[in-house]
């Protein structure tokens, strides 16, 4: 049960997140039914919170889908790192474990097993499952609490804003390098200027600006000013 122990510190943050997301779903105008369905089916704080303003604005479904993919792209990197540990399992099990992967489980698992020679041991898989399942249970319970709270608490408490702050709390620790700072600035400026564009197209432009400027800045830093103007 070392998987549970390693996951425990993350569960407190996850609880706050679950409550905030639960409240945000109700406050954005989703019915309690829809909120519960979203919590059970989607099970992804950042994807849920980013989709809420879009759903409230009646954005086209393809855009909601695209943004859901974009904010979850980090899981491709997680998946690439985790792949060696689970590749010999059957595909339904891999599909399930992959779907249950959240940041906290990845962060608990990798430092412990990244350097182990025997990748894919029973111990590692039980550790992963214990961590993933405990995150799932805590998330669903706290989301339910949030959904219940959301129906009681008045709008004047501005708890919908807490959801935006939760996203902010996710972004800030990731801004560690200068290229990332430049990427965030470019994405933010584009998103601000792009607001009058139809169908929330400014959102996609902002993502493109963020990726392009980040990669450009990385390239410049790597070359250390050698020859680049």
């Amino acid at each position: 049960m070392s998987g549970l122990k390693a996951t425990r510190p993350g569960l407190i943050a996850l609880s706050i997140w679950g409550i905030v997301t639960g409240v945000a779903m109700v406050k954005s105008g989703l019915t309690e039914h829809a909120s519960i369905a979203m919590s059970l089916l989607v099970y992804a704080g950042s994807a849920q919170l980013t989709s809420l303003p879009l759903i409230a604005a009646g954005a086209p479904l393809w855009l909601i889908f695209a943004i859901g993919c974009i904010v979850n792209l980090r899981f491709l990197i997680f998946g690439a790192a985790l792949h060696p540990f689970f590749q010999s399992m059957s595909w339904p099990k891999r599909l399930l474990l992959g779907y249950l992967t959240v940041d906290i489980t990845f962060v608990a698992f990798m430092p412990k097993f990244a350097d182990s020679h025997n990748k894919g041991s029973t111990e590692q898989r039980w550790f992963y499952l214990a961590s993933a399942v405990s995150c799932w249970i805590v998330w669903q319970l706290t989301s339910l609490i949030g959904i219940a709270l959301g129906s009681i608490v008045p709008a004047s408490w501005s708890l919908g804003f807490s959801a935006i702050l939760a996203l902010l709390a996710m972004v800030l620790p990731l801004i560690k390098t200068r290229p990332m700072m430049i990427s965030v600035f470019a994405a933010g400026a584009t998103a601000w200027l792009g607001q009058p564009l139809p169908m929330k197209l400014g959102l996609l432009l902002a993502v493109i600006a963020g990726i392009a400027s980040g990669m450009w800045a990385e390239h410049v830093v790597k070359n250390g000013g050698k020859g680049t103007a």
Binding site: S46, P53, R74, V171, M215
Partner: peptide
């Protein structure tokens, strides 16, 4: 995963995309 390798430049694009997506939601709010 066994079929698709992840080249370095794709990896770096994947690092910037989620953050840009989150920022693009936060700023208009």
């Amino acid at each position: 995963g066994h079929l698709v390798p992840l080249p370095d430049n794709v990896r770096s694009a994947l690092r910037y995309a989620p953050v840009a997506g989150l920022v693009a939601i936060i700023v208009p709010e």
